[in-house]
């Protein structure tokens, strides 16, 4: 195997340029990524560990954490199932409107989350299309947990599908056809052939989806109504605390989100590494 990462010496830039670019990159990363991250933890612990912990076990903070986890626990599995189904559909079948479906999958990436939230308000809110009907049946969506789940699901919709589609396209369907001729039904084909093939890619998509589900602010902010202890997720709770000049508590909760981000990055690295190593090189004989 040739090492593709080793670049040709003919392409090597002069020393001053290399060091210059490196310095610019490091200063940039330090200023915009490392420093803010340090600041989050610095402010969180500025009044000591006891205050930090007290901010986290506070009743409203705990409610926000629980709600955030609940929302992620619904949105992530839903989008996982949808993502796998959509990727299968797009990569294994030819049908009219396939390109439209592909574009629609990307829609949540293209639309501002605030607009996404507003759309749900217009649909399900008291003045919205379905508002009167929902009110008549005593179903609350906007300014309640279902609205938050809906908005989060919308925003995190593309992650799994986007990760799987190129992977499944590259793998082709010959192994599935082989499984079919060996008598495998849809279910055993999925568990025994498809899932092992896409496993790491799926895991990658799921953790990205999860990170976004927990961190989503814009769309959730519009539909939540900011009712403390009821419809506050962690990012919203951080904002409320900060607006109340409760800086330490705000950064304590924010530090949890930052930790989650770091854990996601680490997982992403590990899975990325596994993905590259789990796939034995196919020799093109």
């Amino acid at each position: 195997m040739t090492n593709l990462r080793k670049s040709s010496s003919a392409l090597r830039d002069p020393r001053w340029l290399r060091w210059g670019l490196l310095t610019v990159a490091l200063v940039f990363v330090g200023l915009f990524l490392v420093l803010p991250l340090l600041a989050v933890f610095g402010y969180a612990f500025e009044k000591g560990l006891a205050v930090y912990l007290a901010s986290l076990v506070d009743e409203d903070a705990r409610a926000a954490i629980e709600l955030t986890l609940l929302v992620a626990a619904i949105a992530v599995p839903v989008n996982t199932v949808f993502g796998v189904a959509a990727a299968w559909l797009v990569t294994r079948f030819a049908f009219r409107g396939k390109n439209l479906l592909l574009s629609l999958i990307d829609l949540p990436f293209a639309v501002s989350p605030v607009i996404a939230g507003l759309v749900y308000v217009l649909l399900f809110g008291a003045q919205g299309w379905l508002g009167p009907w929902l009110a008549a049946h005593d179903i609350r969506i906007i300014f309640a947990v279902p609205g938050i789940v809906l908005a989060t699901t919308f925003v995190t919709f593309p992650f799994v599908a986007r990760e799987l589609i190129p992977l499944m396209q590259a793998q082709g369907s010959e192994q599935e056809q082989a499984a079919l001729t060996l008598g495998a039904g849809g279910w055993s084909m999925f568990w025994r052939v498809v899932l092992p093939k896409i496993g790491w890619g799926l895991a990658y998509g799921v953790i990205l989806c999860n990170a976004r589900a927990i961190g989503e602010f814009g769309a959730v902010s519009v539909v939540s109504g900011h009712i403390r202890g009821l419809t506050d997720t962690m990012p919203l709770h951080v904002e409320i605390l900060y607006n109340e000049y409760n800086r330490t508590a705000a950064f304590a909760v924010a530090s949890l989100l930052a930790l989650l981000a770091l854990a996601t990055l680490a997982l992403k690295q590990i899975i990325g590494w596994r993905m590259r190593h789990a796939m034995p090189e196919q020799d093109v004989a």
Binding site: E174, Q175, Q177, A178, T181, G183, G185, R192, P196, P280
Partner: peptide, 17 residues
């Protein structure tokens, strides 16, 4: 194909890696 009970050998083998 699932129920035809036919053995099929693919050009690129299509083994389960």
């Amino acid at each position: 194909a699932r129920n035809r009970h036919v053995g099929f050998v693919f050009q690129h083998y299509a083994l389960f890696n």
